[in-house]
Design a protein around this nucleic acid. Structure first.
Lengths: 201, 201
DNA sequence: CGAATTACATACCGACCGGTATGCACGCGT
DNA sequence: ACGCGTGCATACCGGTCGGTATGTAATTCG
């Protein structure tokens, strides 16, 4: 019952504490000592499961950030019967935009801004996640276009890229302003953009 | 002629080298030693002109980032005879988007994402610059609205906030993708958004 | 049941980091 | 011309960083 020796659970705890620390301070400023303090573990444990701080960071990107994005955005859109409506609702969703999340910003965006010019491995992994996100939007737009809901001349690829960019921009600006209200106003404008792609029936 | 003892020029050199170092590595990862190596100066010089690394960073924000933004965006829009057209042209400008700038990203955006949750003084200064930028857009939109070029029901404040956000989002995503082409495509979509605010005469 | 491997804990290391105390030469005011 | 403050250079400090070498239980496997 005392649950001694559960290596994969230990690894998961390190990943979660690592994600929180990186979310708070960024990767470079993230302290291995803080992560260990949060988990109650020691360096031996961490460097047994991960060869280096960088490898831990990359694992956090793949197994925490990437997985969360797929669950929250990619899958719901893929399973949506009415993709255009689902996309607009997703942009306007009010769940999961706590003050804390506004303060700390989008983990994906934070890491992209910090690590892209600094480390190619990070850039590559983050870019894969970003493209996954963009493709989820693009697919939704294309399906809506097929269904005749979106105007035929709309460039779904470019529009999806813009939605992702504007989304990250909104979270970034809201983070600086520390204002959930600004975030809502900004995302509302993004909703308007998507609506402008629809056919004016 | 050897120009010994020019304190304000020395200060300016420190500011410029500090800006470059911060632009490359972010503020927290910026190394004072690197700045000194770039300028050929020593710690005595830097800490004579600036009480701390943080004060240097804040000075860089105010005197480099802030000033550049006013010169490039605020002033041109204020002096424009046709603000709506000027805004659209500004978004589509092709000057000053070198590969290097795409790789390193927008200095304002970089610092906002990194420092906003970490340091209130940084957040405050950066926010002032951001609001200055937003207000320049808002003023241009409002003038265009007065002139009858933009539809009356457009919320110029929210639209300006969105343009700033989307702009930063585009630079951020382009930075991660390391693609000037993606940046152009993204900004082109932003142009489309602004155009959608115009009256369809 | 013994041996080998896994899963950690402990102690320690060199490399930077920002910051400071001190020294000194130039230039300006009087 | 002389003194004093400004404008730097040099040397040094404590602290934190990521990383490693070693030790030692617990688990697994033959």
């Amino acid at each position: 019952m005392d649950a001694t020796r559960q290596p994969d659970l230990t690894r998961q705890r390190i990943l979660e504490a690592g994600f929180a620390e990186i979310h708070r301070h960024g990767f470079q400023a993230a302290s291995v000592a803080n992560i260990l303090a949060d988990t109650g573990l020691t360096k031996g444990a961490l460097y047994h499961h991960f060869p280096s701080k960088k490898d831990l960071g990359l694992a956090v990107v793949d197994e925490m950030v990437g997985v969360a994005l797929v669950e929250r955005y990619v899958r719901p859109l893929r399973d949506a019967a009415h993709p255009a409506q689902a996309l607009i609702e997703l942009i306007g969703m009010k769940q999961g935009i706590s003050e804390e999340f506004i303060r700390l910003g989008c983990p994906l965006n934070n890491l992209m801004q910090e690590m892209s010019p600094v480390d190619e491995a990070f850039r590559d992994r983050l870019n894969r996640i970003l493209i996954q996100w963009q493709e989820a939007f693009e697919e939704a737009l294309r399906r809506a276009q097929m269904a005749g809901e979106i105007r035929g001349e709309v460039n779904c690829h470019a529009a999806a890229l813009f939605i992702v960019s504007a989304w990250e921009g909104c979270t970034g600006v809201a983070k600086n302003m520390q204002s959930v209200e600004a975030f809502r106003a900004c995302m509302s404008q993004l909703q308007g953009y998507v609506a402008s792609l629809l056919k004016t029936s």
